[in-house]
Design a protein around this nucleic acid. Structure first.
Length: 477
RNA sequence: GGGUCGAUAGCUCAACGGUAGAGCAGCGUCCUUUUAAGUCGUUGGUUCUGGGUUCGAAUCCCAGUCGACCCA
């Protein structure tokens, strides 16, 4: 039927796919032009997708949707003339893209509406829209055909637009503080800066294998060596691991490095960032955590606690870190967890943190001074050689932002890498160590998982709800 | 990788092992201020795929595909 209408239009000498309009306003901007009590004095041209169609004899109300939202249009036979009115009634379908010019007026129910004087079809929808009332709820179709989800599901539209605003706001926030945005390689010889399995690929002309980056860290630190004292990058990382509500194989990280600062400086920075996001993007500092229903209050003071203290608190044992491995295993099992006896001491303890503590930290919490084994890139704490000068910011039971006082001693860095790599010395980034030998300023660094940040700030339940096109299995054909 | 659940009209969903249905969308009719507009009529199906059981399968069994959730 829709193809027939298209054929009829073409037979009448009009091809919608060759037509265009010049909108003067987006929908909401147009509505704002209306002058109270002065119907039909302001002329606007708006364009968008037809999403409701209510014909009643010689007059009709329809609604179109654009980037800003929805605006109502009023078509009348006596305004348009018999012939054009019939084209409107018979040739247009829900889903078509049209442009109209007309004057603004207020209906008797108070809705500001365009009284259409002329209209143009600029693209014919050959397939019908999903149902208007229930929307599109099939998860697979929502992800694979996100454009349909965006057309019919207002929450998805709003949520994903909020993501754009969050990212844009972060850029402005950092630029205001003299941070420089840089772009570093996605294709790398060694996947450094984190512990994760990379995707592998091959460059034909160079005849060499590459991995896709799993972290931005080591290249941004090279920028510190190069004299860029405040840098950041917002970029895609790739990890060849599980897919879940919290994990997508490609995800967006922000990493920030500030010379002559440290992890405490990052603490201030991240709190300021959240405060300004709440203020300027969300308009509120209280957000309901989807999974627990608890209200997260970003305006309240953020808790700060040392890793060892929170473990001692959970285990009820002030002497936990002096226990033998066997006693630690017994202690962990007493808490209802299973551990592999082959694990290192710190892994056994960290199981308590990961399973019993982190998921319960809903309000913003800085956990500081983590065991040094958990990260080889940070400075050792001056008065405790078993921990590092770092924090892990936990909100909503998720790791949102780790930050370090960055290790800038090339010899200590080399030892840490070697200890971590074990047999796999080929995985050490020697070029990075060479850079450190030229002198990297002391610095604070921080990473924020943008996807998780968006989950948190939009109250979403899954990472797939804040990524436009989340990864799914390929379908045959 | 393991477990649980799911896939039926364009969309949202029904249907005891016994004629595949509704609402919206579509098509036709009436209607010049509607708000999920209303009215009367009407079209529409590889029931995810492939096997099996049965007189008879959307329904039961097996295998596969895709997805969701939980676990690793």
């Amino acid at each position: 039927m829709r193809r027939q209408k298209l054929a009829d239009l073409r037979a009448a000498g009009f091809d919608p796919f060759r037509a265009n309009v010049e909108p003067t306003h987006f929908s909401q901007d147009a509505i704002a032009q209306y002058v109270d009590e002065q119907d039909n004095t302001v002329t606007v041209t708006v364009a968008g997708r037809l999403i409701t169609f209510r014909v009643q004899g010689g007059s009709s109300f329809v609604k179109i949707q654009d980037q800003q939202g929805v605006i109502q249009l009023y078509f009348r036979k006596d305004v348009l003339g018999e012939e054009r009115y019939m084209v409107f009634k018979k040739q247009l379908d829900l889903g078509d893209l049209i442009g109209v010019t007309g004057t603004l007026f207020k209906t008797k129910t108070g809705e500001i509406t365009v009284r259409v004087e002329s209209f143009t079809l600029v693209a014919k929808a050959l397939r019908p829209l999903p149902e208007k009332w229930h929307g599109l709820s099939d998860a697979e179709q929502v992800y694979r055909q996100r454009y349909l989800d965006l057309i019919v599901n207002q929450e998805s539209r709003k949520r994903l637009m909020t993501r754009s605003r969050i990212v844009s706001h972060i850029r402005r926030f950092l630029e205001d503080r003299q941070f420089l945005e840089v772009e570093t390689p996605v294709l790398q010889g060694v996947a450094g800066g984190a512990a994760a399995r990379p995707f592998e690929t091959h460059h034909n002309a160079l005849g060499t294998d590459f991995v896709l980056r799993i972290s931005l860290e080591l290249y941004l630190k090279r920028m510190l060596v190069g004299g860029y004292d405040r840098v950041f990058e917002i970029g895609r990382n790739f990890r060849n691991e599980g897919v879940s509500r919290r994990h997508n194989p490609e995800f967006t990280m922000l990493e920030v490095y500030q010379a002559y600062s440290d992890y405490r400086g990052m603490m201030t920075l991240v709190q300021d960032l959240f405060r300004s996001l709440c203020n300027d993007v969300l308009g509120t500092a209280q957000i309901t955590h989807a999974a627990s229903g608890e209200v997260i209050d970003f305006a309240a003071d953020w808790r700060e606690v040392k890793y060892k203290d929170i473990i001692r608190e959970k285990t009820g044992n002030p002497d936990w870190f002096n226990l033998s491995k066997a006693d630690k295993i017994a202690g962990v099992e007493a808490l209802g967890l299973k551990v592999d006896p082959k694990w290192e001491d710190y892994e056994i303890t960290n199981e308590i943190f990961g399973k019993l503590i982190e998921p319960k930290l809903i309000q913003p919490t800085f956990v500081t001074h983590l065991p040094k084994e958990l990260c080889p890139l940070a400075k050792i704490t001056a008065d405790d050689p078993t921990t590092i000068d770092v924090f892990e910011l936990i909100i909503g039971g998720m790791e949102i932002a780790p930050a370090y006082s960055e290790q800038n001693d090339p010899d200590v860095q080399r030892q840490m890498f070697e200890a971590q790599a074990g047999e796999e010395v080929q995985k050490i980034d020697h070029d990075f160590l060479l850079a450190l030998e030229h002198g990297m300023p002391p610095a604070g660094g921080m990473g924020i998982g943008i996807d998780r940040l968006c989950i948190l700030l939009t109250g979403a339940e899954s990472i797939r709800d804040v990524i436009l096109f989340p990864q799914l299995r390929n379908t045959a054909g």
